[in-house]
Write a protein that binds this DNA or RNA. Structure first.
Lengths: 294, 294
DNA sequence: CTCGCGGTTTTCATACTATGAAAACAGTTC
DNA sequence: GAACTGTTTTCATAGTATGAAAACCGCGAG
């Protein structure tokens, strides 16, 4: 029955290459909260023995995937990654296709707009246009990630995704950020069903108290949800704008991007064919959880 | 004599971890000219046997470092890289520190300005502010790279770097892009000496015929050159502006950024202490060239 | 419909590579 | 100067990554 006879089953019938897996685990350990780490931090974060972590890190440094403070000392993600991200970003045609519509949406609403996708079970920002009110610049930024369960973008992406990510997120503990964060799995499931019905998602301060955000899914030609767009701003202003049809505008903008990507459908239909893997999608990392029969 | 008794000597006294090295070689094979590759392309580019390349690629896909078209087919750099680049970019405080000065320079000159660093022997753009003339958007972009020997940024970085990169670049064949490209090593060396004297570098259509560019080095607190800034535009306009003291402005802007980074010196002195490795710097990749004694 | 071809995926026995415990080393603090 | 804390190196060995070759797949031509 095609159970990979080796240790960890993985991608297809393959085993994981341990050293590579570990190297990537080391890279993955960095995020905006811990953008720099000492060897010890790394060991702790990855559960690797010091000698091993050291050797791998040295290899990554050598190749520019990590940088290191004056030969010894803290590590942080290196320039090679910036170069590659440039290439990666260039491959996301959603980004180019969405740009004009996004700009329009920003200019009309005067608030910050985002384009984002799902990376594993987190939202990753692919594009950001700063709002025109010179006020608080949001903490977002291209390449940043945010939790999915408490952001409009995340909820839109989960609700209109293929269901795997939704299950994955729901199956874990949902972290509380504000009093309004939905931390109950069943509740979230219901909420996402509603999002699916509506065709858009709203975040009413579930991640940051004063922020309101509206998001709608973007589908590629095959109908697969590959990204989402959003408008976000302070509660005050956003509420006024929502009264004036901002939600409709966001949905309209998303639909227009879909059309520019070649998607013809229109009604928010749930995913059915699991075939395509077109643009986005990273399977869950660290540990393969139990044997999904597939 | 501390020659690593293992196969390939590397970072310090360490050997390379082959599978990791190969995985990174695969990633490195992607660039804006070949942003997508089939397995066969990869094999060709990396000289790996198909089975090996396949297995490694599958591992990278699994972790989101590569994406793959619908399960089989072309590979391209994945979202994980975008996330990490975000973290990396956040760590370059040059970037933040330089931002206001850069903007000023752009607004004054109305031309496109760049912040860039050396990644191996190429220039990598870390920041770009589009010029105000709505005309030709340059092909640059954050994360893109360009050759060092024929761009103002590159020449500034080489001339004021620690010398290793300069030697490295000169020791190789210098590709010709335009009639004015300096393709002779000795000539380039002389030219860089002049750059060092002047304190800035100029590109007179050595990379793209019609483009003129002025660049000056940015030093960190220790005096080490970690980046360079530039103003670039069409020959016509740039020549006018150079008559009006644009060169001085660029140098002044660079010096101001240095000061913001805590560098107190001022005269362009050549590097002397090889201690720091502060912000930037990736050693050469692929193959360790002959035995540099130290 | 079948054959053949270019490409991708899987298998499998083995060589040799990556591993981590432990020891050396370096830098700081008391 | 002694006692730590964290980093680097060593080294014998377990067991992993390897690649040749075979299976597979999809497609176009006959």
């Amino acid at each position: 029955m095609k159970t990979a006879r080796n240790g960890q089953a993985s991608p297809n019938g393959h085993y994981r290459i341990r050293s590579i897996d570990r190297a990537l685990t080391i890279l993955d350990a960095f995020d905006s909260l811990r953008p720099r780490m000492s060897l010890t931090d790394l060991c702790q974060a990855t559960q690797l023995p010091p000698s091993t972590a050291y050797r791998i890190a040295a290899n990554l440094v050598h190749r520019g995937y990590l940088s290191q403070d004056s030969g010894r000392g803290d590590y942080w993600p290196g320039l090679a990654l910036i170069r590659l991200a440039g290439v990666a970003l260039g491959q996301l045609d959603v980004r180019e296709k969405a740009a004009p519509t996004l700009k329009e949406l920003r200019d009309d609403s005067k608030e910050t707009v985002h384009l984002a996708a799902l990376d594993g079970r987190r939202v990753i920002y692919l594009e950001k246009l700063e709002g025109l009110h010179a006020v608080g610049l949001m903490s977002s930024r291209v390449g940043r990630t945010a939790p999915a369960h408490c952001t409009a973008l995340g909820k839109a992406l989960l609700a209109f995704g293929d269901g795997d990510a939704e299950e994955d997120v729901i199956s874990r503990k949902l972290e509380r950020f504000t009093p309004r964060t939905i931390v109950d799995g069943a509740l979230l499931r219901g909420h996402l069903a509603k999002v699916r019905e509506q065709g858009y998602a709203i975040d009413v301060g579930e991640h940051e108290t004063d922020v309101r955000c509206i998001a709608a899914p973007v589908r590629d030609h095959s109908g697969k949800t590959i990204a989402a767009i959003s408008v976000a701003g302070p509660a005050q202003r956003m509420e006024v704008q929502m009264g004036r049809g901002l939600i409709k505008d966001v949905v309209a903008a998303a639909n227009r991007i879909c059309r520019d990507l070649g998607y013809l459908g229109d009604a928010p239909r749930s995913q059915e064919d699991g075939s395509e893997r077109t643009t986005v999608g990273r399977r869950d990392s660290r540990d393969e959880r139990s044997g999904r029969t597939r």
